[in-house]
C-alpha cells in the first residue's frame, strides 16, 4: 500500500515528536523529575509511530510499554501533557495522579497499561469481540514486545482472534531483548511472526527501523481488519539502544552489551533513516525539518510546563475511598 506524500510527511512529523518526547522523558528521569521508572524508547520509535498514526479515534490501541506508550499515544491524537502530569504525581494527571506510570484515555480507546507484561492480550480479545459485533469498522491495534509473546495469554488471544476472525492486529515490536534476555534465546524460531503460522493467521515481517515500511504494513493490516478480513500479525524488527529501564545495567544475558553491538545498532537510527528518505524524495527541505523539530520542542515545553505547574495530587483519603467503586 503506497503512502501519499502527505502521509509520509505526517509520519515524519510524528517520528520527530516521538523522538523528542522520548528524549524529554529520559532527561526528566535523570533529573529526578519523573515518578517511578522509565523504559527508554531510543532506537525503537518507528514501530509505534507507524502502527498508530493512521488509527481512527474509535479504534482501540494498546501501546507498547517501551517509551511508556508515548510514541504510540501522541500519534493517536492524545495530549501527552495529561500523561506527563500523571507520571509526576499531579492532580491534573490522566488518572488523577493515582497511577504512577499507568495511563488511561478511554475517550481515545486507550484503556490501560498493565503493570504485568502480556496482560494486553486478554482484553484485546474482548475489544475485538465488541468491535466485530458493532460492525462499524473499528479495529484493534495491539502493540507489545517480543518478550510478551512468551505469555500464554498471547497464544490464547491469537487462537480466539483467528477463530472468530476478529479485527485485531498483533503488532510485535521485536527489539531482540527482554530486559537482559535475547529473543534468540527465549524463542525457538528467529521470527516471532512464525507463531501466526500455527493459527493460520496472515503475517508480515517488516523493517522496524523504517517508519514508512512499518506504516505500509500497518495500513494493509488495518484495511484487512476494517473490512472483515480478520487478524494480521506484524513483526517489526527493531532495536533497543539503551538499557531496559534507566539505571539497570545494559546486559545481554549476564554480560555487558559490546561496543561493537552498539556501533552496529546505531547505524540503524530510525530518525536518520527517515530523514534521508524525506530529503532524498524531496518531500521536505532541511529548513522545513528544522521547523518540525522546533515545533516539537515547543510542544514539549508546554507539556512540561503544564505538568510542572500542576499541584501534587494529595486528595483526602475519603475521596479515594469514594472512587473504588463506580456509582
Amino acid at each position: 500500500m503506497a503512502l501519499t506524500s502527505d502521509q509520509m510527511v505526517l509520519l515524519y512529523r510524528n517520528m520527530v515528536r516521538a523522538d523528542q518526547f522520548n528524549k524529554m522523558m529520559y532527561r526528566r528521569m535523570m533529573q529526578g523529575k519523573l515518578i517511578g521508572f522509565y523504559h527508554p524508547a531510543e532506537g525503537a520509535i518507528a514501530p509505534g509511530v507507524g502502527a498508530s498514526t493512521f488509527l481512527n479515534q474509535d479504534d482501540n490501541l494498546s501501546p507498547h510499554h517501551r517509551g511508556h506508550g508515548i510514541t504510540h499515544m501522541l500519534c493517536k491524537g492524545i495530549d501527552i501533557k495529561y500523561y506527563l502530569a500523571e507520571h509526576t504525581g499531579k492532580e491534573t494527571g490522566c488518572c488523577k495522579g493515582r497511577s504512577a506510570f499507568h495511563f488511561s484515555f478511554p475517550e481515545h480507546k486507550v484503556y490501560m497499561m498493565s503493570g504485568f507484561i502480556g496482560y494486553n492480550f486478554a482484553p484485546v480479545v474482548g475489544w475485538g469481540f465488541a468491535a466485530k459485533r458493532r460492525a462499524q469498522g473499528q479495529v484493534v491495534m495491539n502493540c507489545s514486545g517480543d518478550g510478551s509473546y512468551g505469555q500464554g495469554r498471547a497464544h490464547e488471544a491469537m487462537l480466539m482472534s483467528q477463530n472468530w476472525q476478529l479485527p485485531v492486529i498483533f503488532f510485535c515490536e521485536n527489539n531482540g531483548m527482554s530486559i537482559f534476555s535475547t529473543a534468540q534465546e527465549m524463542h525457538p524460531q528467529e521470527n516471532i511472526a512464525s507463531l501466526a503460522d500455527g493459527f493460520g493467521m496472515p503475517s508480515i515481517i517488516v523493517d522496524g527501523q523504517d517508519v514508512f515500511a512499518v506504516a505500509e504494513a500497518s495500513l494493509q493490516a488495518i484495511e484487512r481488519a476494517r473490512t472483515g478480513g480478520g487478524p494480521t500479525f506484524i513483526e517489526a524488527k527493531t532495536l533497543r539502544f539503551n538499557e531496559h529501564d534507566i539505571g539497570t545495567p545494559d546486559l545481554s544475558g549476564w554480560e555487558e552489551r559490546s561496543a561493537e553491538e552498539h556501533e552496529a545498532m546505531r547505524k540503524r537510527e530510525p530518525i536518520r533513516i527517515a530523514t534521508e528518505r524525506v530529503l532524498g524524495d524531496s518531500l521536505l527541505t532541511q529548513n522545513e525539518i528544522d521547523q518540525i523539530i522546533e515545533d516539537a520542542l515547543a510542544e514539549i515545553e508546554a507539556v512540561e510546563q503544564f505538568a510542572d505547574e500542576s499541584p501534587i495530587a494529595r486528595p483526602p483519603v475519603e475521596e479515594l475511598m469514594a472512587g473504588v467503586f463506580a456509582d
Binding site: 490501560m112 492480550f121 484485546v124 480479545v125 474482548g126 468491535a131 495469554r153
Partner: peptide
C-alpha cells in the same frame, strides 16, 4: 485468560 478477556475487554467497550 482469553475467555475472561472477552468479558473484561467487552465491558471496557460498554
Amino acid at each position: 485468560s482469553g475467555m475472561y478477556g472477552v468479558a473484561f475487554g467487552a465491558a471496557q467497550e460498554g
